[in-house]
Simulated scan of single mutants.
Amino acid sequence: MDVDAYLDRLGVARPAAADLATLRHLQERHLATVPFENLSIHLGEHVVLAEDALFDKIVRRRRGGFCYELNGLFAALLRELGYRASLHAAQVFHADGTPGPPLDHAAIVVTLDEPWLVDVGFGRFSRYPLRLSGVDAQPDPDGEFLLLDAPHGDVDVLLDGKPQYRLERRPRPLSDFVPMAWWQSTSPESHFTRSLTCSRPTSQGRVTLSGDKLIETVDGVRNEVVLPTEAAIRTAYRVYFGISLNRLPTPPGESPLTPGALQPDTAVQ
Rank of each mutant, 00 (worst) to 15 (best):
R166N: 06
L54A: 03
F66G: 02
L31H: 13
E168A: 15
D140T: 04
L159Y: 03
F125N: 09
N71V: 04
I108C: 14
S86H: 07
Y128I: 08
D52L: 02
P173Q: 10
G97P: 02
F74Y: 11
D142I: 00
P99R: 00
R131I: 03
E51C: 04
E45K: 13
N38K: 08
R60N: 12
G82M: 03
N71R: 11
P139G: 14
R61G: 07
D154T: 00
H105Y: 07
L73K: 00
H46S: 08
Q138V: 09
D154E: 11
L87G: 03
R61V: 01
V59F: 08
D104Q: 12
A90T: 02
P163Q: 08
V109P: 09
Q138P: 04
F145S: 10
N71P: 14
D96P: 06
A75M: 14
A75G: 11
T111H: 14
V109R: 11
V157Y: 08
K57G: 03
V178D: 03
V48T: 12
P173M: 13
R166P: 02
V157D: 09
L87F: 04
A76N: 07
R131A: 09
A85Q: 05
Y128P: 03
V155R: 15
D104G: 14
P102I: 10
L174K: 05
A75S: 15
E144I: 07
N38L: 05
L49F: 02
V120R: 03
Y68A: 04
D176P: 01
R127G: 06
D140Y: 07
F122W: 13
P139W: 11
E144M: 07
E51M: 05
L87A: 05
F55I: 01
A137N: 10
W116A: 04
H46Q: 15
